[in-house]
Amino acid sequence: MNKITNNKAWFLVLPVFFIVAISAIIPLMTVVNYSVQDIFDPQTRFFVGTEWFEQVLSDRRLHDALIRQIVYTMSVLLIEVPLGIAVALTLPRKGWGVSASMVLLALPLLIPWNVVGTIWQIFGRADIGLGGYLINLMGIDYNYAQNSMDAWLTVLVMDVWHWTSLIVLLCYAGLRSIPDAYYQAAKIDGASRWAVFRFIQLPKMQSVLVIGVLLRFMDSFMIYTEPFVLTGGGPGNATTFLSQFLTRMAVGQFDLGPAAAFSLVYFLIILLVCWVFYTVVMNAGKQGEQ
C-alpha cells in the first residue's frame, strides 16, 4: 500500500511514545547512570567510567552463564521449531477438531509462568509426580533436584511443553492461508509430499515463522521465572541462565554498578541478534522474490 506523507501522524503516535518513554527511557537512563558510577548512598557517588563493564566482561561466572544460555536457547529453537511445524501439519483443517485442538494447544500459553514451574516441579518429582515416578519405574535414576543433567533436561522439556504451541499456532495460521488450488495443482503435477512442503507450505509459513523464531529467541534468552521456581538455578549452577544471574547480582547482592553494566550488555546482545536475524531473513525473502 502506498502511504501518504503526513507529519501530523505524529499526534496519533504521541500517546504511545509517552507511555513507552516513561516506562522505558527513564529506567534505561537510570541503568546507564548506575553503570558508570560507584554509589555508596545518594550523596556519595563516584564516576568510574568503564570499570564495571571491564569487571563484568571478564567475569568467569558470567561467561559460564552466557554459554549455558546460548546452548539452552539453541536447543530450544532446534527442538521447538521443527516440532511445531510437524504438529501444525497434522492439525485438522475443518470440523469440530479445529476448535478443540486450538483450545487444547493454546492452554499452556495462558498459564502464569511460575505455575508452569510449579506444575513441572510437582510432575517431575519421583515421590509425588507422575513423570518422575514413571521415569524411575523404567529403571532410570532421575532426580532433577540433585543431578545437573536431569535438571537441565527438565527445564528444556518444560520449555518445549510450554512454548511449542506458539510455533504450532503461528504455522497453522500460515498453512490456512494456502488456497486449495495450490494443492490440486501439485497433485496434477505429481509432486511428492516433500516437494509440496518445500515449495508450497514452507514459503507460506516463512513470514509467521520469522515472528515465531524471533519471539522464541527473545523469550528463551530472557527466561527467568520457570527455572527459578523449578530448580532455583541449581543444582550448582546448572540452570542459572543470564536473567537469573542478573537478578541475583542486582537484588541479592545489591551490586548495582556491575548489574547495570551487565544489563546493558545483555540488552545489546538480544538487540544485535534480533536485528541480524531480521535483516538477513528479510533480505533473503526479497532476493527470493526477484
Binding site: V31, M222, F267
Partner: peptide, 11 residues
C-alpha cells in the same frame, strides 16, 4: 526485547 530483569530496580 528488553529483559524484564534489566528494568527491575529502576522500575
Amino acid at each position: 526485547m528488553a529483559p524484564p530483569a534489566v528494568f527491575l530496580l529502576p522500575f
